[in-house]
Amino acid sequence: MAEHFRGELPRLLRILAAPAGFLPLGPALTLAVRRFARRKPAVFDRLGDYGKCSFLIEPSDLDISFLMVPDGTRAEVKCLRRRAGQTADVTVRGPLLVLLGLLDGTFDGDALFFNRAIAVSGRTDALVALRNAIEDAELTPADFVGATGGLGKLVDRSVIGGLGLARRFTGSPIPGEPS
């Protein structure tokens, strides 16, 4: 797979998106997923046994990757240095914006394959299951940070708007548009 994906963040944005040195991103994300599992257990029912699979998510434009086991309230997310030689049931690699598109519903199970900005290896079925389960959750960015009410709406608006802008800005593929 080519090292340079379409839709990668420009260098400036990449620096801005990089986590600060000591931010405990892993525990924070673990907490967020578990909190989410308590609020929307149906998503994890839908995931079934795939919840026990490990997902290695490698944004090609960041120097970190994420290892996630989305096992409901026992979910775990680890934040790793890139190229740590980590193995997982399924590895998905691509530009951060495209990966986020998997979460917010921009890309569906089919688009996932059509769009070769993402490279998948290992258990493709686990990724399809995760993608389909998330699809039904009607997930919004606020869900990730646990924001509710007016604050949640604000988070959603700003993040979704920002994502759309960023996608256009970086030439990241937008489904439905000829590419």
Binding site: G105, D108, G109, D110, A111, N132, E135, P175
Partner: peptide, 12 residues
């Protein structure tokens, strides 16, 4: 057709 497709696709 498209039960495996997402909400965005279905809506459009």
């Amino acid at each position: 057709e498209g039960r495996q497709r997402g909400k965005g696709y279905v809506t459009e």
